[in-house]
């Protein structure tokens, strides 16, 4: 009888919960606020960018814990996460964040059809947190691994070493 459905008692979670939280990152101390202090940025290079871009995970761990979504590769920049150009204005970054949130936030109506686990949103929010803060964005831009980008990017960008000479 349908009526009995109404009295089903639920103490469990409202949505189906994720099965497991992943292991802590190898550099948790740098991860706490999403941004680094100045002292942590002596050399703009691949490694520090890797720390900033995303939580680096060792392959064996990601395998072992099989996260719900494909984790972004280390080379994926915060700009890529938000799907904006590196020259994007603050307003563009904000609106990109909003539209992505509408797609990936677990509470969003679009996500209701296929419940998002929240992993994507955490990543998007982390990117937004850095890029929406002018000083954090400037630091991040400095630490970007320029040599990985195409010549076009390279030609356009000034690096801080060269800035000193100008």
């Amino acid at each position: 009888m349908t009526r009995s459905r109404c009295f089903v008692l639920r103490y469990s979670s409202r949505k189906k919960g994720r099965c497991l939280v992943q292991l802590p990152s190898p550099q948790p101390s740098t991860e706490m606020n999403g941004t680094l202090t100045l002292g942590a940025l002596p050399v703009p290079g691949f490694r520090s960018a890797a720390i900033l871009t995303s939580r680096p995970r060792q392959p064996m761990r990601t395998l072992a814990f099989a996260p719900a979504v494909a984790l972004p590769a280390v080379s994926r920049s915060l700009y890529d996460v938000l799907q904006v150009k590196e020259t994007a204005s603050a307003a563009e970054i904000k609106s990109a964040y909003r539209s992505l949130a509408k797609r990936f936030h677990p509470d969003a109506s679009a996500a209701a059809a296929s419940p998002a686990s929240g992993e994507e949103f955490i990543e998007i929010h982390r990117a937004y947190a850095t890029l929406s803060d002018p000083s954090a964005r400037a630091q991040y831009d400095l630490s970007m691994p320029r040599f990985e980008f195409s010549g076009r990017t390279w030609a356009r960008t000034r690096r801080w070493e060269t800035d000193q000479c100008w």
Partner: peptide, 9 residues
């Protein structure tokens, strides 16, 4: 912002 995940040593 939630959902969120933070860790600390």
């Amino acid at each position: 912002a939630v959902p969120s995940r933070k860790d600390m040593l």
